[in-house]
Amino acid sequence: MPSKIVLVYPSYMPFIQRDYRILSSHHIVVRLEYNRRGLPRFLLWSIYRIICADIVLAWYSGLHALICILIAKFFRKKSIVILGGGEVAALRHIRYGSASSIVPSLVAKIPLMLADRVIAVHSSLVVKAAKELRVSTKNMLVIPLGFDYEATTDNTEKENLVLTVALANSWPRALVKGLDIFSKVAWLIPDCRFVIIGVSPEIARALKSVGPANLEVYGPMPWSQVTEYFRKAKVYCQFSLFEGFGSALAEAMLYKCVPVGSPNGAIPSIIGDSGFIVPLDNDAQIATSVRKALNADLGERARNRIIKLFPLERRKRDLLRIIDELSS
């Protein structure tokens, strides 16, 4: 018998959409999107939805998760939190991450303590949760994101284009995604297009004002348009100071972009031997690695690495297994 699941999240990202399709293939799933400006309405809808549900699954451990997990506990419903990354980040010098200050860290910590299961998308997040939030990891398990390689079969000719994709509506977010570094590297390779996708108008204007003529900066766009850039780009850069997984990095690799990334978080384990890992303290060294990537024949290797290590079928199997365990 299918379970009734409330899937709650702050933004309906592509990887959350994939989880929704996985869960709804076997269960009845109701989506609940959190909007901090509509908190009273969200609270009422949460109570209404959770009363009728069997399981609450919250993507990210934030205020939306805290509200829904507390409601689930009150009505004796099972609950799951998916740990995505920012909840355990503690980059205090740029005021980024829930673990960087007291109140946000408590908001992130309590759902992890109360949930019946906590699913981390990468093993590094389990370590960070124990260190930064000081929570027990007994109820935590790692289920990496999964990707549909069949949807990315493509033979579009690559262009001399270097790409990065990052949703950034604040400077701390832009800095943690390494967009300032990306802009500096663009100055050092003037004969190549550099493209940033996903930033707010304010961040876009600021980056363009200090960037070179070969730097293009765009706001969020439909996923179908983003994939067009994946198809054309030779190189994808992930210069993050902290990265829970790097979904866009893996997506780009599926489209045969040669990856260049920082040694932080999950990035090295995603790139492996299919690209370049470079420290972020030397712009010239980063530019050299990007040049090498532009001339490297590693696109097929990058694609095959994601297909082998992060199959969608494995995530589907493991997510459905957890639901079955909590439903029994």
Score class of each variant (00 low, 15 high):
Val121Phe: 07
Trp59Leu: 01
His26Ile: 11
Asn264Val: 12
Pro201Ile: 09
Ile306Lys: 01
Ile47Tyr: 11
Ile16Phe: 10
Val162His: 10
Pro2Met: 13
Val258Asp: 06
Tyr218Val: 08
Gly97Asn: 05
His122Ile: 09
Thr164Cys: 10
Glu243Asp: 12
Leu114Lys: 10
Ala53Cys: 12
Lys177Leu: 07
Leu320Pro: 01
Arg31Ile: 00
Leu106Ser: 09
Asp324Met: 08
Asp283Ser: 13
Leu7Ala: 00
Asn155Phe: 11
Phe147Thr: 00
Pro263Leu: 07
Arg305Ser: 11
Cys192Val: 15
Pro268Met: 02
Arg291Trp: 05
Ser11Thr: 12
Asp154Phe: 02
Arg41Gly: 13
Arg134Ile: 05
Ala302Gly: 03
Ala213Asp: 14
Leu179Cys: 04
Asn214Arg: 11
Ile28Gln: 14
Gly219Glu: 12
Tyr20Val: 03
Ile196Trp: 05
Ile80Val: 15
Met221Glu: 04
Val121Pro: 03
Leu280Ser: 07
Ile51Arg: 15
Pro10Ile: 00
Ser240Met: 00
Val6Ala: 10
Ser123Trp: 05
Glu313Gly: 05
Asn295Ser: 14
Glu313Leu: 04
Thr227Val: 14
Pro263Ile: 07
Leu43Phe: 14
Ala204Gln: 14
Glu33His: 01
Gly86Asn: 15
Pro201Met: 09
Leu249Ser: 10
Arg18Leu: 02
Thr156Val: 13
Pro212Ser: 10
Val121Tyr: 03
Ala168Ile: 06
Lys128Pro: 01
Glu243Leu: 10
Ala252Gly: 06
Ser105Asp: 10
Leu114Gln: 10
Ile306Tyr: 00
Pro144Met: 11
Ala90Glu: 09
Arg18Cys: 01
Gly85Tyr: 10
Ala151Phe: 02
Ala99Tyr: 09
Tyr149Lys: 02
Pro2Thr: 12
Gly85Asp: 09
Gly198Leu: 07
Leu167Gln: 13
Pro212Ile: 08
Phe276Ile: 03
Arg76Asn: 14
Pro268Leu: 04
Lys128Leu: 15
Ala115Phe: 01
Ala108Phe: 03
Phe147Gln: 00
Ser24Arg: 11
Ala252Ile: 03
Phe75Tyr: 12
Ile82Glu: 11
Ser200Arg: 07
Ala248Cys: 11
Lys292His: 14
Phe75Lys: 08
Ile197Pro: 06
Ser3His: 07
Pro268Arg: 06
Gly38Lys: 14
